[in-house]
Design a protein around this nucleic acid. Structure first.
Lengths: 230, 230
DNA sequence: GAAGTCGGACTTGTATGGTAGTAGGCCAAT
DNA sequence: ATTGGCCTACTACCATACAAGTCCGACTTC
């Protein structure tokens, strides 16, 4: 089966390193590159028909996010998901987004409420089996909140740490949870619309803690993806 | 003046790239490398008697922190301090540390209070002209809080973003401010000791907002270090 | 004199070569 | 049968070479 290698198109207007980073990051989050898998600079470079150098830079960035572990002279491995790391990231994200939503709720801008309600309507229309589509809309929802508060930078920080959470979410979101998450979105927006700062904050914190509920279950059913240290 | 180049000792047991990163980061924060300065991979590499590759990796990491700006085929420049960026970082830091201190205040661990009070005593003994020494102790104080809450990861996130704040602090901390900052530390610890969760949070938020008070003044007196966009 | 053009000396980005170190298989010796 | 030692293949890390683009000054031309 001499299948022609699908030459992944790398843009010429952007440096290759960051592109490789995004490709690998996406593959790790979506478990195409499974936890524990061994990858090598040379192997990836061959696959993309580029040199090892940009791949190396991508590895470094992935290692900073904790998505891979680089062992000098030994190899580079996709990290297994650590429930402790997931909870660490969730804590940071909750802290930042709590202050963001407090600010939004305190500013009484009707346009934002309309925008968010429209997004919720779209979330309800997502087919129940299309997890990726819902996750994209969920991401957009939280991103919109941050932008509305004028906190684009804060969101960029969240983005740079949330990969660990996304890996779990990709494994865990099922239909039932989607419905509950949408309800929580509505609760957040209602609180914002009412100018209920404290209520909005609490609603958001509860929303982000939802992930913890399914985490033990996922860690057990997909034990090979998780490290054993808890 | 044929002065012998002081060969900075690079450890052999750690990769060179991260070491270069730390050296340059320190120099930028302490304004040895002044904002707007042009630096080049080759120049730094020659100075350290290494190749361009590890320097390049350091540049990439510095660029992610916003400490330098890499313009392909043109050059790399130490960024000027942006007051907007400083406020962005402060927002993130305040959000995270607020949740940390709430947790510490809610746990009623006497050992932590003792440790923090001892640190404050040491802060009072710092000579009033030794800014660097006080900043180190201040850093230790906040780091200790995070560790006490079991939030080592959260602190690592703060560390990776706070360079922008540190650059300003290095320019701004004078004797008067040191006294006020120590008072605020005491206020925070008192609230923790009393188990006053809300009070501890507010005290910490006020503490971290202190930097904003001197920011406009610094930005004016050292205008050449700041960008003009506000 | 002024404007346009060409060339060289930079810059970062990418590719490739070389080095030290690890892992694991194979073989020999006990 | 088990253990110890070599040897090959692989790894990441660093150094070096090459490529592509930018800037600036000198020269040419009008």
């Amino acid at each position: 089966m001499q299948n022609i290698k699908p030459q992944r198109v790398l843009s010429a207007i952007e440096a290759v390193g960051p592109q490789v980073y995004r490709i690998l990051r996406e593959q790790i989050i979506q478990a195409e590159l499974v936890p524990g898998a061994r990858i090598s600079e040379a192997e990836i470079a061959r696959g993309l028909s580029i040199s090892r150098q940009p791949v190396r830079e991508a590895f470094i960035k992935l290692a900073e996010e904790g998505l891979v572990q680089v062992l000098p002279q030994r190899g580079t491995y996709v990290t297994r998901i650590s429930t402790a790391s997931v909870m660490d990231v969730r804590f940071v994200r909750e802290a930042i987004e709590a202050d963001i939503v407090r600010q939004v709720a305190g500013e009484h801008k009707a346009a934002i409420v309309d925008e968010l309600r429209e997004q919720i309507a779209r979330q309800k229309q997502v087919p129940h089996d299309d997890r990726a589509a819902f996750l994209r809309l969920d991401e957009l929802f939280h991103h919109t909140l941050a932008t509305a508060a004028g906190r684009a930078y804060a969101w960029s920080v969240i983005e740079s740490v949330k990969a660990q959470m996304d890996r779990v979410r990709f494994l865990s979101v099922d239909d039932l949870q989607i419905g509950r998450l949408i309800e929580q979105h509505e609760h957040i927006v209602d609180s914002i619309a009412a100018g209920d700062v404290g209520g909005a904050e609490q609603a958001l914190r509860m929303h982000l803690r939802e992930i913890l509920k399914s985490l033990p279950e996922i860690a057990q059913s997909r034990a090979e993806f998780f490290d054993g240290t808890g």
